[in-house]
Design a protein around this nucleic acid. Structure first.
Lengths: 200, 200
DNA sequence: TCCCTTATCTTTACAGTGAAAACATATAAT
DNA sequence: ATTATATGTTTTCACTGTAAAGATAAGGGA
């Protein structure tokens, strides 16, 4: 299909511009006008595609959750493939650790997007689409944790796992981790303690 | 001493107004002009006491850390006093759990202040005073964790403890915890898993 | 082809924000 | 008393998100 109106597909280009901006600047600097500038359009143009900045950010955040879920899923399957000789229980643990590792990598490689997704960015509107996307991430972790601790304690286990990696990621992003600590080692230790805490 | 200049002690009143605002509104709504309004003064008056909004917020945040340290300290000593018959190791664990509980209570009762202290609020400037205040909180937790895991692993243990409670607190504040979960029970379970993960 | 409706984008305007400069005034020092 | 310094106010500027009004282009009948 050819372009059916003026700009081509401004809605898509706004989302791309927003994601690009999130990769280059701090999350608070990603403003409506900045996104419009990057898309080469006036700052009022987005109004016809998104009710407000909050709705635009919500859609960008939802896409972030999709990439997030994909990254964790790929990490989990890759880990399981490499260790097909383990027992199911051991495989479940390996998968969970791999997901935790991928979680920390995602937060570090997509700092601004992560802060948009999990921080309390002003103006962000909790649209149904965003709620759904974040819920799919939640249920992904619940499933992986449930495979380790049993479905009875899946949610509590998932919440603890999530707290550990999310807490570590945000402390790191906020510069609260002493810089002299060996970061990679710290990550592995935390994942280890996380697993030890979860296992009955 | 009587009032030595125009307003009395505007610097102090600005800090009080800021803390009061943090108790009543969301952290992003606490603007320079809002604080000035509450202090009954023009929006340019703070310039003579704080170089910028970021410096004013930094001082408020530093005070938050002082209250934070005090709250955790009181909780720890209260817990230790109640259980003077335990072994030193058991006392150390009891103290650490009590501090974790106090941590979660502080974050919930001082949501906006907590987000100012640990979030990534725009404009905030990392003044030496703020760095010092936040460092005292860090070393407090390092000491308490070190009493449990030994001074060799104090920092790694402290970081894990901090990640657990900080992660849980921020997930709760961000509304990411499913509302049907029994919150108080979840808190206790998380503290339990945190301790299990930390103990060698 | 002509006209009209609708969708899209621009321009302009408004109420906020933090910061900076110019100005006013009260306190303190000499 | 005069001067200097500290403290506040007023004004201005660049930026933000939102809203309304104007412009332009596409599509749908006659």
């Amino acid at each position: 299909m050819a372009k059916t109106y003026h700009h081509g597909d401004l809605r898509e280009q706004l989302l791309n511009a927003g994601e690009q901006a999130l990769g280059e600047m701090v999350v608070e600097q990603v403003t409506l006008r900045e996104i419009a500038r990057r898309a080469g359009v006036s700052h009022a143009a987005p109004k016809h595609h998104f009710a407000s900045l909050g709705h635009l950010l919500a859609e960008i955040s939802a896409r972030g959750y999709q990439r997030f879920v994909k990254a964790l899923d790929e990490a989990a399957t890759a880990a399981a493939d490499q260790q097909a000789d383990l027992t199911p229980d051991q495989q479940a643990e390996t998968r969970l650790v791999a997901m935790g590792r991928a979680y920390l990598r995602f937060a570090e490689s997509n700092a601004a997007a992560y802060q948009l997704m999990f921080g309390q960015r002003a103006n962000l509107v909790m649209t149904p689409h965003l709620i759904g996307a974040s819920y799919s991430a939640w249920s992904q972790i619940v499933a992986a944790a449930g495979a380790v601790v049993g479905s009875n304690h899946a949610e509590a286990g998932a919440l603890h796992v999530w707290s550990c990696v999310h807490g570590l990621a945000t402390l790191k992003l906020a510069g609260r981790v002493p810089p002299d600590l060996p970061w990679h080692h710290i990550e592995e230790q935390t994942l280890q303690m996380m697993m030890k805490g979860i296992k009955s």
